[in-house]
């Protein structure tokens, strides 16, 4: 087996974010989250419910962007909204900015009234974060992404959720990046380092983060490497074309 790439480590880390979710709708945005949830379904959590990203629940686990041959249901956008409020969903979204308190921004950079960079808009981030488990995928961990305070709060972190009386179903689970895995379980609901990827130091992650990271008690572990079986699934079954390297270059 060739050397394990950073992208392979990221895929396994995404999979691990969904492993304890049980029978819920795993909803990935982007290539690496899609690869990770499919890997999860084929390994640690076969009960996960997956869609084609369009309108169908998949019976099987096809390779990235391949058509599924077996369908197990229908999930048009309006039913996605139903599932969000039903709560049995874990979404992994992107994030243009994430701040110390785990708020996320995909709306705009700069002043909202006249932004220096208009992004997608809030999309479903406000609803997601106060209704179902939410994680983020950041392919390029940098101080431009991890900022003291986001310019626009699209996704709501635990502190702001509590201040708004919306903490009941707020559950920011993991932030997986190309360097590390984080959560929002530091003191005062701040972003905390969970593990650093093999070959990455805590100092590197801190240097690529625009605020001081909370650290776990007893030191920072290393993110696990994928197993031989997982590597075969990633490389030969789910992503033989290497689409994951578009997000995390080998």
């Amino acid at each position: 087996m060739n050397e394990i790439t950073r992208a392979d480590v990221c895929a396994a880390a995404v999979a691990d974010a969904f492993k304890d979710d049980g029978e819920i709708f795993g909803s990935p945005m982007g290539i690496m989250p899609m690869l990770g949830v499919r890997l999860c379904k084929l390994t640690s959590n076969p009960d996960l419910v997956l869609s084609d990203g369009e309108a169908m629940f998949l019976g099987g686990v096809p390779p990235l962007f391949a058509k599924g041959d077996v369908l197990e249901g229908w999930i048009p956008f309006r039913r996605v909204f139903d599932i969000i409020v039903y709560g049995k969903r874990h979404v992994m979204m992107g994030a243009t900015q994430v701040d110390r308190h785990g708020n996320q921004n995909i709306s705009a950079i700069g002043d909202f009234a006249k932004p220096t960079r208009q992004l997608l808009g809030s999309r479903g981030a406000p609803s997601n974060t106060v209704n179902n488990r939410t994680s983020y995928w950041v392919p390029r961990h940098s101080p431009r992404v991890f900022v003291e305070q986001v310019d626009v709060v699209s996704g709501v972190g635990p502190k702001r959720a509590r201040e708004a009386g919306a903490e009941k179903y707020n559950d920011i689970h993991r932030i997986v990046t190309n360097l590390a895995v984080l959560d929002v379980k530091g003191a005062d609901d701040t972003v905390r380092l969970v593990s650093v990827h093999p070959g990455v130091t805590v100092e590197e992650v801190q240097g690529a983060t625009g605020f001081e990271l909370a650290l776990p008690e007893g030191g920072v572990p290393t993110t696990r490497e994928p197993s031989e079986a997982e590597l075969v699934i990633i490389r030969e079954v789910l992503d033989p074309k290497g689409l994951r390297f578009k997000e995390v270059p080998a």
Partner: peptide
């Protein structure tokens, strides 16, 4: 609905 609470949509 809950969605929107705590976000800058309200701001």
């Amino acid at each position: 609905m809950r969605g929107g609470l705590g976000s800058d949509v309200m701001v």
